[in-house]
């Protein structure tokens, strides 16, 4: 599904596009997070399903690991500097939010969030985003804020921190000390992704 088949930013790892600092950071990321499990089995299943709903990867033989990294971030209490009114601290927001998702799924569909079909899961998340929730577990959690600015935010940051996601969208990836020369539209440097076919009408 990528518009840039065959392009792999990792192929540039040993060129001047990558410096030592970046190599160390990305190597460590690819090795996976140090296991710091903080979630109950049930919550982890909900988290994994949530990650899959926010960034579904049916096209990937080797999906980008998202849930374990998010869990590690929760374990580290990785905060963003903002706690919006109506939300508890980061770690608590995740714990209660995952529980609320699970409760909502059971209330509506009588089954675990992780066992919903992708379509039902997506519909449920749209309902959460529209703040049309019924489970009492949402009390004291602003559902839209929680979904967009805590959960989806972190999930997307983790997904787009992976080189495979950079390759997928044709992003140049790490660039230091070598940056870019050809800055004009429709121009590329020899160390960039080949051009993709022009976009169709988008998704109107």
């Amino acid at each position: 599904m990528t518009r840039y088949p065959g392009y792999d930013v990792l192929a540039k790892r040993d060129t001047p596009s990558w410096d030592e600092a970046t190599r160390r950071v990305v190597d460590a990321r690819l090795a996976g997070p140090a296991a710091r499990p903080v979630l109950e089995e049930r919550d982890y299943r909900t988290l994994a399903a949530l990650c899959d709903a926010v960034v579904p990867q049916p096209d990937r033989a080797e999906p980008i690991p998202v849930a374990p990294v998010v869990e590690a971030a929760i374990a580290e209490d990785r905060t963003t500097g903002t706690r919006f009114e109506g939300l508890p601290t980061m770690r608590e927001a995740w714990g209660r939010g995952l529980a609320a998702l699970e409760a909502e799924a059971r209330l509506r569909h009588g089954t675990a969030f992780a066992d919903l079909t992708p379509e039902t899961r997506e519909a449920l998340l749209h309902a959460v985003d529209a703040e049309e929730v019924e489970a009492p577990e949402w009390d004291g959690l602003a559902p839209r804020r929680l979904f967009r600015d805590v959960m989806a935010d972190e999930i997307l940051r983790v997904y787009f921190a992976h080189p495979a996601a950079w390759s997928e969208i044709g992003f140049g990836g790490p660039a230091s000390p070598r940056g870019y020369v050809r800055l004009g539209a429709g121009r590329r440097d020899a160390w960039e992704a080949p051009f993709a076919p022009p976009p169709d009408g988008g998704e109107r």
Partner: peptide, 19 residues
Amino acid sequence: VSNTGMFGQALRNRMALYN
């Protein structure tokens, strides 16, 4: 996602046009 609530395949399709 923060502004439009876009996620899932729709978001991946949008990001595919990043360049």
